[in-house]
Write a protein that binds this DNA or RNA. Structure first.
Length: 641
DNA sequence: GGCAGCAGCCAC
DNA sequence: AAACGTGGCTGCTGCC
């Protein structure tokens, strides 16, 4: 047995590294002691990287420990060590992991320890930390990383185990990306830090639990978050099929488009379309006037400004308001193709497992409002005005894609939270809320522009936006917008009342508001007005998460692919897809403080993109698929008629 | 080569 | 009185 000693907060800790069968006896004794006494054991893994599902991925070590002792099992190429780890994970009654989804999925995939058996016994210290204060360090919070939390709560001199290892990687000629795979599994710093991570996680747990107890964040909410996390893990594990041929061709097409347009820009002296300083200088040189500035004082040349110069509207159609500036046009097109190529195309093409599936990463508890995020690739923000990118993502073979989203969930949540009676009645009657508002304010002869303005004002309530922003967005004169806002406030008195009430509460209670589920949302002192938005956004998030839990109870998780803020994306075998989508819709629909939250299930075809195409296009854009499935082609043809 | 900050753009 | 919210990610620039 190797022993590495390290002093943490004044007490000596020991990291044990078993080397043979006899050492494993001592490891087993440790595990049995933890199990017999019902103690929480910290768990962590070291691996070759972050891409859990890539074909060359490997688990290197499994660490288990408490506040003073850590065991590092070197499972890489050592079946007896892997077996000991599997055994320990099967008998330990409770474990704590910092950022559990990663380790749960690694162990599920690479140690045959199923997520389903491990997750119910795991507490994620990152979840606890987020529920106490969701803010990152940069946002004025304590941060959510193991290092930041350990330094704050356990020992100010806690080492930056990840950061320090990066330095070690460099000293052996590797990088942050390659070091985890390359470093000698017996490197003392590697082993020491592997052990320290569980020792810190172990010490952190009771501190974070006590923090939550003090502020009255209860067990039910903590359990709820762990349930949601586990459901998201199942979706990550399943992943989604990618049309590799399509995506390869798409990347090629986008590359060509980006290059062609960049060549045009080069004629005007712009060698790099993403260099804003070059673009603005060239435009000024052509005689254009740029007035807007960025926060740091540079001339702003964003999409809105370039569209204006290129005489294009937001749908990229000619407006006929001026002579288009060819440089602005080329820069716009080159940048869009470039972004689509790298952020979406390449990410989908190069991130696949051996079966051609992409395993994105769902952070079930990410934003300071608890909203989720998805990365690798960022599937919550694929272009939606165009099906091109989503066409690359496919339901399982023989399945159909479906999507169920809430109708205007944030406005409805706001109406419910504010107990705004007029708005609640309109929703209950199934009215088009923005048209209803427009009629109340402008009378029965309201125009579509009036409706748009009212929609914008409502949005402003949810986002905290003001008159100036809305005037810019809609093009309506500022006085008109101001008038609309005050008419809105008179019509829906409950909203303003609620907003003022929230801000008063927040100031009185140390710049924190509590959502209906008891979640704490800290506010920035200079942006207390954001309270309403935080409340609405966070509650809408919890609505979808409650729906995920309800769906899990009904066995529907196996059909789910992704949560997207107010939407669940899934797929099901073709013959039952309609039924499954309807059932998902039914489960998601709920009554929220007297306000119905309705859903809109939609079943598509053989790609995600099909949900974004005109019906007539669906077959044409999947011609390879329908050529291979003539029966389905006939059936689809029938449906079109 | 890697990092941080800025600017920008994609979504809900 | 007015106050545009939450993310992921890329490319460029300047710097170590």
């Amino acid at each position: 047995m190797k022993h590495l000693r390290y002093t943490v907060a004044g007490t000596e800790t020991v990291t044990h590294v078993p080397e043979d069968g006899r050492d494993l006896q001592s490891f087993r004794a440790f595990v049995e002691h933890q199990a017999r006494n019902g103690l929480v054991t910290a768990l962590d893994t070291e691996t070759t990287g972050l891409d859990i599902y890539s074909p060359t991925y490997g688990l290197r070590t499994v660490q288990l420990g408490n506040a003073v002792d850590a065991y590092v099992l070197q499972v890489e190429g050592r079946p007896e060590m892997a077996e000991a780890a599997r055994w320990a994970l099967s008998v330990l009654p409770r474990m704590v992991v910092h950022n559990a989804p990663f380790d749960l999925l690694v162990l599920d995939r690479h140690l045959s320890t199923p997520l389903e058996t491990l997750a119910p016994r795991v507490t994620d210290s990152k979840i606890l930390a987020h529920m106490y204060d969701p803010r990152l360090r940069a946002e004025g919070g304590t941060g959510l990383g193991l290092k930041e939390l350990s330094a704050l709560h356990v020992d100010p001199s806690a080492p930056d185990t990840q950061g320090d290892l990066t330095a070690v990687f460099r000293s052996i000629g590797e990088t942050k990306a390659t070091g985890w795979r390359a470093i000698d599994i017996n490197h003392p710093t590697y082993l020491q830090y592997a052990g320290l991570d569980v020792i810190f996680a172990s010490r952190l747990l009771p501190i974070l639990e006590e923090q939550l107890r003090k502020v009255g964040v209860g067990r039910p909410l903590v359990d709820f978050e762990h349930r949601v996390m586990t459901i998201c893990c199942k979706m990550m594990r399943r992943g989604m099929r990618v049309d590799h041929d399509y995506v390869t061709a798409l990347v090629g097409r986008l590359e060509e488009e980006a290059r062609e347009q960049a060549l045009i820009a080069e004629r005007y002296g712009v060698t790099s379309v993403n260099a804003t300083a070059q673009v603005s200088a060239a435009l000024v040189g052509m005689g254009e006037t740029l007035t807007e500035k960025t926060p740091s004082g540079a001339l702003k040349v964003d999409k809105a400004i370039l569209l204006d110069l290129a005489d294009l509207d937001t749908s990229w159609q000619r407006r006929g308001a001026r002579t288009p500036n060819p440089l602005a046009d080329a820069v716009l097109r080159s940048k869009r193709a470039g972004k689509w190529r790298s952020s979406y195309g390449i990410a989908m093409r190069d991130g696949l497992d051996a079966a051609g599936r992409i395993h994105y990463n769902i952070n079930s508890l990410q934003a300071r409002t608890a909203r989720m995020s998805i990365s690798g690739p960022p599937l919550q923000q694929l272009p939606s005005g165009d099906w091109t990118i989503r066409r690359a993502l496919l339901p399982d073979e023989g399945h159909r894609i479906f999507s169920v989203d809430y109708s205007a969930v944030e406005m409805r949540v706001l109406a419910a939270l504010a107990d705004e009676s007029v708005m609640k009645r309109a929703i209950a009657e199934g009215r088009d809320l923005h048209a209803f508002t427009a009629e109340l304010i402008y009378g029965p002869d309201f125009t579509s522009f009036h409706r748009k303005l009212c929609k914008g004002v409502g949005f402003g309530k949810v986002y905290g936006g003001g008159a100036l922003t809305l005037s810019r967005q809609t093009g309506a004169p500022l006085p008109d917008v101001k008038k609309a806002i005050s008419a809105y406030d008179r019509t829906y008195r409950g909203i303003k009342r609620y907003s003022s009430h929230l801000q008063r509460e927040a100031r009185a209670r140390g710049f924190v508001v509590r959502t209906p589920v008891g979640r704490r949302l800290p506010l920035d002192r200079d942006r207390v007005y954001a309270a309403t938005n935080y409340m609405v956004q966070s509650t809408a998030r919890d609505v979808l998460c409650q729906a995920l839990v309800d769906m899990d109870d009904k066995g529907l998780t196996e059909y789910l692919l992704l949560p997207i803020h107010d939407e669940a994306l899934g797929c099901a075998p073709a013959d039952i897809a309609e039924d499954v989508a309807r059932e998902v819709g039914k489960t998601m629909s709920m009554d929220f403080f007297g306000v119905p939250l309705d859903t809109d299930p939609e079943v598509g075809g053989v790609s995600w993109g099909s949900l974004y195409m005109k019906k007539a296009d669906v077959m044409m854009k999947h011609d390879a698929y329908y050529a291979a499935h003539p029966d389905e082609a006939r059936a689809a043809e029938e449906r079109r008629k």
